[in-house]
Amino acid sequence: MPAQIAINGIVIIVGNYGSGKTEVAINLAVDRQAAGQRVRVADLDLVNPYFRTREARRPLEALGIEMVLPPEGLLQADLPILVPQVAGLIRDPGDLAILDAGGDDVGATVLAALAEAFAKSEAPVRMLQVVNPFRPNTDSVEGCQAMRKAIESASHRQVTGWIGNAHMLDETTVEHIARGYALMQALVADSGLPLVCMTAAAALMPAIGALDVDCPMLAVRRQLVPPWQKPVPLQPEKSNG
């Protein structure tokens, strides 16, 4: 399987509620930073105050990843806070700027308000839709395409690629990933959009080699865990590239 996830410029992560956008955004940032790209992450989830990128700000900052967040005192506020730095980040994203949007079309609505900043930016813009085929509304090609349409309509932007995030949390097996990959293949054929990567828990990665997966694999170390679990340490591995 290809080892590298080839992205740069602006990458917007979208997807339905509970698709795992935020874990993907965090781990993508860690992966790219380890590969030598200078990564910045903006938490654009203005909708749901639970399980947001900001909760992983400490370990990410420890790795040198720059976070664009609301002011410290308002991090837990049930308020839509779109800081002006986001527009700055879009205009000048550097190597890689990951924008983690909120769930569904509702969470993606904020992107429409940023249209001017996107227009002024010269960097490439990708909008990647995260799909977990084990979630109720995205367990079929039709479901994924319907969600894509809703997000595109709300954000006034086009989805440019897919990220397959097939998992059942702690109960995930290689079999789940294989089934997820099959659905992603069908989605690629139907949409004509590329599959940027698949994900798997870091612990499952050694077993993935046996699968015939023709896309890069992103190792996921869960950060947004309930209080009775500990996040998997975010040790930056030496990138193969």
Binding site: L46, P80, T109, V110, L111, A112, A113, A115, E116
Partner: peptide
């Protein structure tokens, strides 16, 4: 409310 309307400020 550009953010929740899903518009740029001038559009809003």
């Amino acid at each position: 409310c550009p953010t929740n309307w899903g518009m740029t400020p001038p559009e809003a």
